[in-house]
Design a protein around this nucleic acid. Structure first.
Lengths: 243, 243
DNA sequence: ATTGATTTGTTACGCTGTGTATCGAAGACC
DNA sequence: GGTCTTCGATACACAGCGTAACAAATCAAT
């Protein structure tokens, strides 16, 4: 996926515009729609990978749209924006098949992060079309998120378990940054750590072993009292490995 | 993170003081600044994890500060305080890269809660900058923050521990300046020194040894009763070291 | 469900990094 | 030189981390 295509549906033109601008700057390709009609037209006429949908639209609740989208194209991702922060709404939203939700007012950064998260999840669940898949390359290794596969410098496959691959991807998306255990735990499992939780360390250890990261030049650096850092250079490629 | 370091920037000394006191009581370590100059000085000389920033400052809008902060240190968290509660303002504030906002008048408890929330998220939501990795060069050595690596004039890797590398970076960012133990301690660990704390000295000693800084011409000069000074010339490079 | 295989979390123990204590060396001031 | 202070370096203690071994949970396929 070169640039994910996002459709923003919100009746407030100002929010719409700003959001579109922000997401553009974040590497997404954005389209806007102010109502149901426009929304449907965009969905019919252009490629859309994910919909950011305000549930409070003037013409008929956005919930309808959500339901319809999921009815017709179950693998199209939807993130709901809701002014009401009530859990009930959220549950309902998810019951309608939305992939995530966000209470208004929300932090655009968080929205961007969630979009990325949903898209990553999504591509594994529903294998996309003939689109080229992105690949991450580092120190001779090649990781392909779509296939959840990793091959070493010799080209031989390195079998990673789910958690190991997820952890690797977290680092590949954030090379050079020191990631604390809290953040890693949050990104990996969405929960927080209790003081003596060592699961991150163990998973790191296993991942390191499979990557033969035991030399002097560590791929993953340990920052004492800080967390871990991926120290290798990462290249994102629009890979052409397609049958 | 032991005690998060908060910088409160507000021109009203009373609000500043009260806020600082409250946040102190909430387990944060607080510093105060009344204007842009003070703000910049604090950011340069002490460790700051999060900035609480009034957008209505007398000397130039606080929005400038926010923009500058996010420009130089994208992963430093900022929470904006604004007198205008309009959504537009909020979004605009966030477009400047702030992590959250709060309309005045606000409930201190809510501020504390949001601070905790933002810190917990950390910079995980922060978009990755496509910025080239800077490298510091001095006396033949090359330090690359993104990899937390240091190589000596021969190009061989010098393994530094976390604290050693952090300390080195502090000096590389402030070449020629005499840094007191207080400032070093603050920048290194975000806490203040008790009178007989020698940990800085020990870390300096270990760092010096690893840099072979034992000749007559010292890389690190000791300033008696003053602190330490990095005496070599430092060049910052926008490095593109390809593997 | 039951079984067996695989993945993930937990515990325990040894290793490493960092702060503290201590002692000797180097200045500073008389 | 004598004395006091400050700094450098070594020694040691302790907390953070790596990982092996085990236990629990999850999954696949009957």
């Amino acid at each position: 996926m070169t640039q994910p295509n996002i459709l923003v549906v919100d009746d407030d033109p100002e929010i719409c515009r700003l959001l579109g601008k922000y997401l553009d700057g974040q590497g997404f390709r954005c389209q806007l729609a102010a109502n149901k009609r426009q929304c449907q037209q965009r969905l019919a006429d252009s490629r859309v990978d994910l919909v950011v949908l305000d549930v409070m639209l003037p013409d008929g609740s956005g919930l309808d749209i959500c339901r319809e989208i999921k009815d017709e194209r179950p693998d199209l991702a939807v993130i709901l924006l809701t002014a009401l922060k009530e859990d009930v709404d959220r549950i309902i939203g998810l019951e309608l098949g939305a992939d995530d939700y966000l209470g208004k007012p929300f932090n655009p950064r968080e929205l961007a992060a969630r979009i990325r998260a949903v898209l990553r999840r999504g591509s594994s669940a529903a294998p996309k079309e003939e689109r080229t898949a992105p690949a991450y390359r580092f120190e001779g290794f090649t990781a392909i998120p779509e296939r959840r596969s990793l091959s070493d410098p010799d080209g031989t496959d390195v079998p990673l378990t789910g958690a190991e691959f997820d952890l690797l991807m977290i680092f590949l998306d954030r090379p050079g940054r020191v990631l604390s255990r809290e953040i890693l735990m949050d990104l990996l499992h969405g929960r927080s750590v209790d003081p003596f939780d060592r699961s991150i360390d163990v998973t790191m250890s296993r991942l390191r072993r499979k990557l033969n990261d035991n030399g002097v030049f560590r791929l993953f650096k340990t920052v004492r009292n800080g967390g871990y850092q991926f120290a290798a250079r990462v290249e994102r490629e629009e890979d052409e490995t397609q049958p």
